[in-house]
Design a protein around this nucleic acid. Structure first.
Length: 733
DNA sequence: AGCACGCCGACT
DNA sequence: GTCGGCGTGCTC
């Protein structure tokens, strides 16, 4: 207690971080009888409303005039405080992403409900002293028989178990045979058993698993499990999870897609006899609160979740696994722009536990980190179960292309025919939805364009529509040209999956052809059904977009034909080659995954491109060598830093002035090249409200410092300014 | 006049 | 992030 000038006792002050986009924590008075410590979760007044926040510093001097100070409203003393390591992570991530710490805290405090203990569930129990009811009907007898064990039951659970309706139970309560009691809330998930079903591992898997198990009880270390499709990475890191559990620690497994969780959870259950807790954007508020609470108290031992699970308040986290670490879904682009893969490594470093990254096609960043010795590489070069990797060949479309208006090369057609003859499945992969990406008028040259965007409209023949894949605009398919009025003059240009399916149907009229594309009517349910149909051999030829690349195993798939392997290589994204390589490796890896009898064909006009050559020669190392050299030469990530300054708002003149300011400050650093102010200015002239500047420098600290200083001194434009830095932080740990 | 909307600054 | 205040412009 501090004596103030007037001899009265001044209340101690604390700084509270609020889930609000302000630069620093705010100061509040601690009222009598409240004793929050570092990390305590509190409720405070903020302007006209109340918000929750976390105590970031205690016993501080007031930075604002005492007259403005307000009192803490409440201390959530039932909720465990955020520990030092988690608070350090919040500050670290805020500093790294240039977001306000409050916005990072917001990702931690995702469930206000979780701060109060879970309300007990009302249940019913037999009143022991009470005799059976006078009229013991069959239904009533079933209820009492079910309750022989003497335990309390939930009403609905009891009704279900006894096969009666809830009114029978209400009747027994009214007759004072049963009483209503408060049952403690059920734990969110049962505890997993690390020794339930240990797998039989191959020699290579065993070597990797042994190293992980050894590291599991130790401090920070990052592993990269670099294993081909089907090599059994999951079994290997499950052993690390088991070791963490045995050591009394919690484990977190991050996976990229929500859509894949259910299959993954089942797999986990087979190994550990219990489902892990689930965490992603779709879970119900109640379950979210349960998992959050359970993670904080230690009742939940393993969480499987999407990137946001990284910010859960684990009590004794001892391992993070990042599965498919190369996946773009780990990046968040809005609010706090972070990559959960990198922040997982940061969390492991701050708390002191191992982190495992796993992929069949690791990101270039992780390959470089492994080469530099920052990550321990664990290689699984062969498929488990003795299956062979598919043989991949490139088809040079300049020499072996089909006739005009057709898209499947003769070599690929022969391979499909062979697969059909053997009763095996083929997958034709084309990452383009719809029938044709462009519709053209042959007589006047009119091209159908989106009224909102500057892109072409994609024909969807099954639906009879033209659609814009950027904004969702749709219009009915035209029967004449709106420009010259010509009928019969409209021609579709280029293929989409629908058109490939049509061609396959024409070539093989007896084959059952099935299209898999994310825009199929019927939603997730239909998709599940279709996947099952394929799995059970109900289709001969599957034509699919990107979604066939992930998750699902097709046991009968023998041939994978990539219709346009060059698609995606040409766009200006610095990661275009890497992404294409990863996608095509994943897709062709679907072939013969179970049978070991598979092959892939890549239709290409650029057979000498490093991506195509690496895939066709089954020489992944060659791809990474070429890509790493190219990145190094161009100062691209992970050697250069790529940042995007996004200025959004209505005031074009102010935003344009900012673009010029950045362009002007760039030459001060000879290593900094600013690409894009001209494009950005152009976008502004065209009336867009957003643009990007891409800036690159070999040293991230330079770029960050430069941009931060510039953001501080520059006049604030109307609208908002957001800075996004896309850089792998390993070199700063 | 009445209000819908967008912008902007404050929030301890 | 969220709120209230305020100016602008449109409608009853």
């Amino acid at each position: 207690m501090v004596q103030d000038l007037f001899g009265g006792s001044a209340r101690p002050l604390v700084r509270v971080l609020l889930p609000v986009a302000v630069a620093e924590p705010y100061t509040y008075r601690v009222p009598e009888g409240m004793a929050p410590g570092l990390g305590s979760i509190v409720r405070v007044p903020l302007g006209p409303r109340e918000v929750i926040g976390v105590v970031w510093a205690v016993d501080v001097a007031t930075p604002v005039s005492p007259g403005r100070l307000k009192d803490l409203l409440h201390h959530y003393d039932q909720a465990p405080p955020l520990d030092d390591a988690l608070r350090a992570l919040i500050d670290w991530v805020a500093n790294w992403t240039l977001a306000s710490p409050g916005m990072v805290l917001r990702m931690v405090l995702r469930s206000e409900e979780a701060l109060e203990p879970e309300a007990p569930v009302p249940g019913v129990r037999r009143i022991e002293a009470a005799p059976p009811p006078e009229r013991l009907t069959a239904a009533r007898k079933r209820v009492l028989d079910t309750m022989e064990d003497g335990f309390a039951w939930s009403k609905s659970g009891l009704a279900h178990a006894a096969g009666v309706s809830a009114s029978v139970i209400d009747g027994l309560i009214a007759h004072e045979v049963l009483e209503v009691v408060q049952m403690p809330a059920v734990p969110p998930v049962p505890a997993p058993d690390p020794d339930w079903a240990p797998p039989t591992l191959t020699a290579a898997q065993q070597v990797a698993a042994d190293r992980l198990v050894k590291a599991a009880s130790g401090g920070f270390q990052t592993f990269l499990i670099d294993g081909v499709t089907g090599s059994g990475k999951t079994e290997v890191y499950f052993e690390a999870v088991a070791a963490a559990l045995r050591a009394g620690r919690q484990a977190l497994i991050l996976i990229p897609e929500i859509a894949l969780t259910s299959a993954f959870l089942e797999r986990f259950e087979r190994r550990f006899a219990a489902r892990p807790a689930e965490w992603h954007s779709e879970i119900s508020p109640k379950q979210r609160a349960r998992v959050w609470r359970g993670v904080a108290t230690g009742d939940v031992r393993v969480v499987v979740g999407a990137r946001s699970a990284l910010f859960l308040p684990f009590r004794e986290l001892g391992l993070i696994v990042v599965d498919e670490e190369h996946d773009g879904a780990y990046k968040q682009d809005d609010r706090v722009p972070y990559n959960a893969r990198d922040m997982a490594v940061v969390r492991g470093h701050l708390t002191g536990f191992p982190v495992i990254l796993a992929s069949a096609t690791p990101s270039v960043e992780s390959q470089v980190n492994a080469e530099a010795g920052r990550y321990q590489r664990l290689e699984l070069p062969e498929r488990a179960l003795g299956a062979n990797m598919p043989e991949i060949v490139a088809i040079d479309m300049r020499q072996d292309g089909p006739e005009r208006g057709q898209w499947l090369a003769p070599t690929l057609r022969r391979a499909i025919a062979e697969a059909l003859a053997d009763g095996a499945q083929s997958l034709l992969f084309l990452n383009r939805r719809g029938y044709a990406p462009l519709t053209l008028c042959r007589s006047c040259g009119h091209r159908f364009q989106c009224p909102n965007c500057s892109t072409w409209l994609i024909e969807h023949r099954f639906r009879g529509q033209l659609a814009c894949h950027h904004c969702g605009h749709v219009e009915p398919s035209p029967d004449h040209c709106p420009s010259c009025g010509g009928t019969d003059s409209l021609v579709p240009c280029g293929p989409g999956v629908e058109r490939i399916a049509e061609e396959a149907g024409d070539l093989f009229p007896d084959a059952r052809v099935l299209v898999l594309s994310s825009d199929l009517p019927g939603g997730a349910e239909r998709m599940k059904r279709e996947m099952k149909v394929i799995e059970e051999g109900g289709a001969d030829i599957v034509v699919g977009t990107q979604l066939v690349a992930k998750g699902h195993n097709f046991p009968l798939m023998r041939l994978v034909g990539v219709v346009d392997a060059d698609l995606g290589l040409a766009n200006g994204d610095p990661r275009a080659a890497e992404r294409t390589f990863q996608l095509l490796a994943q897709v062709t890896g679907r072939a013969g995954r179970i049978s070991g009898q598979g092959h892939g064909m890549l239709q290409t006009y650029a057979p000498e491109h490093p991506v195509i050559r690496a895939l066709a020669r089954d020489d992944r190392a060659a791809f990474y060598r070429a890509e790493i050299a190219a990145r190094r030469a161009a100062h691209l990530p992970p050697f250069g830093r790529m940042a995007a300054l996004i200025i959004s708002g209505q005031d074009k003149a102010a935003a344009a002035a900012h673009a010029r300011a950045l362009a002007l400050c760039a030459p001060r650093d000879p290593a900094l090249t600013v690409l894009g102010p001209a494009e950005a200015a152009l976008a502004l002239v065209r009336g867009r409200h957003r643009f990007r500047l891409l800036a690159m420098t070999p040293r991230a600290t330079d770029l960050q410092g430069l941009l931060r200083a510039w953001l501080k001194q520059a006049p604030k434009p109307r609208g908002s300014v957001r800075l996004q830095v896309d850089v792998d932080p390993q070199s700063f740990l």
